[in-house]
């Protein structure tokens, strides 16, 4: 009886264990199957690089959305990478232990805050702020803009980059720092020449992970970025990133022919791009580990 249970348990667990991999495959093919309808009519390249988005006329050019995604992500990275890395260095190399123990949970907390809440904050604080500062640069902006999206997104990816970077730094042996310090190097010199250099692969991985997180982030960006289907010309213009496109059109999705197919293609593209970056980041991390030995 006991052995029977053991066997049954084992079988059930085995079947369940295959599921995650299966889910991944299913996800890919599910989205692919749906997007075939539109790919049968138009070329993949044509869809990616044409900029007309008129669902009712059957035009589904994804180009403005790709550009929108790039803009917002780029702005987010420009803001988030230096700030996150500086904070990570501060926590790992400078901060007293008490402060480190205090700050780490706060970072976890930040990463646990739901996307919509960032969106609310963005709408209430960042959007008016951007609207206010745009005239200083000689431009008008409603505030709902690439810059607002980028700022909100930057705050959302702080925890990702900081977390990975901290792990990378803590893997660097302490005596290595001592070696540099004992030559009379200052802490910053030690950090720059030893810690950052030794951790370079890991730092790249941290940034790439932040990037892929930013690429897929939906709700917060959707709420502040303005959603105009044209490629933005400056950071004060509205943009329309890919995830926002998918999320924003759930209503009409079944009423317009090919619409669902086009959106699923967008989801598929997002899936592939994000995964490419994730795998790239993993590759860098593995290299970083090998280097540490």
């Amino acid at each position: 009886m006991r052995l029977l249970k053991e066997k049954a348990g084992r079988t059930v667990m085995f079947i369940l264990t295959v599921l995650p991999t299966l889910l991944l495959v299913l996800m890919f093919f599910g989205l692919f199957r749906k997007s075939r309808a539109i790919l049968a009519l138009k070329s993949f390249g044509g869809l990616l690089f044409s900029s007309g988005w008129h669902p009712l006329r059957g035009e589904f050019g994804l180009f403005p959305f790709l550009i929108g995604t790039l803009w917002v992500t780029a702005v987010a990275l420009v803001i988030a990478v230096p700030i996150s890395l500086l904070m990570a260095v501060y926590l790992s190399e400078y901060a007293p232990r008490g402060f480190r123990d205090f700050a780490k949970p706060l970072i976890d907390l930040l990463s646990g805050i739901p996307s919509v809440i960032f969106g609310v904050w963005g709408v209430l604080v960042i959007v008016p702020l951007v609207g206010r500062i745009a005239p200083l640069f000689g431009r008008y902006s409603s505030g709902y803009s690439v810059l607002a999206g980028g700022i909100v997104l930057a705050v959302m990816i702080f925890p990702t980059i900081i977390h990975v970077a901290l792990e990378v730094f803590s893997a660097i042996p302490f005596p290595l720092r001592e070696a540099s310090l004992s030559l009379g190097a200052t802490r910053w010199e030690t950090t720059r020449h030893v810690v950052l250099r030794k951790g370079s692969q890991g730092i790249i991985a941290a940034c790439v992970l932040g990037l892929s997180r930013a690429l897929g982030e939906t709700m917060a960006v959707l709420m502040v970025v303005g959603n105009v289907p044209a490629a933005p010309k400056s950071v004060f213009d509205a943009g329309y990133p890919l995830p926002a496109l998918i999320a924003n059109n759930y209503g009409e999705i079944l009423s317009v022919p090919l619409y669902d197919s086009a959106l699923m293609l967008a989801a598929l593209v997002l899936f592939i791009v994000v995964q490419t970056f994730n795998i790239l980041a993993r590759w860098f991390l593995v290299r970083a580990e090998r280097r540490a030995e």
């Binding site: 982030e217 899936f271 993993r282």
Partner: peptide, 25 residues
């Protein structure tokens, strides 16, 4: 190893893609 890899990959998928997949299902 394959399963852990799948978890990592699934973990990185944006939630909007889960939404789209849920819709397909």
């Amino acid at each position: 190893e394959l399963t852990r890899f799948s978890f990592d990959v699934l973990w990185g998928i944006p939630s909007i893609v889960y939404g789209a997949f849920g819709f397909v299902l």
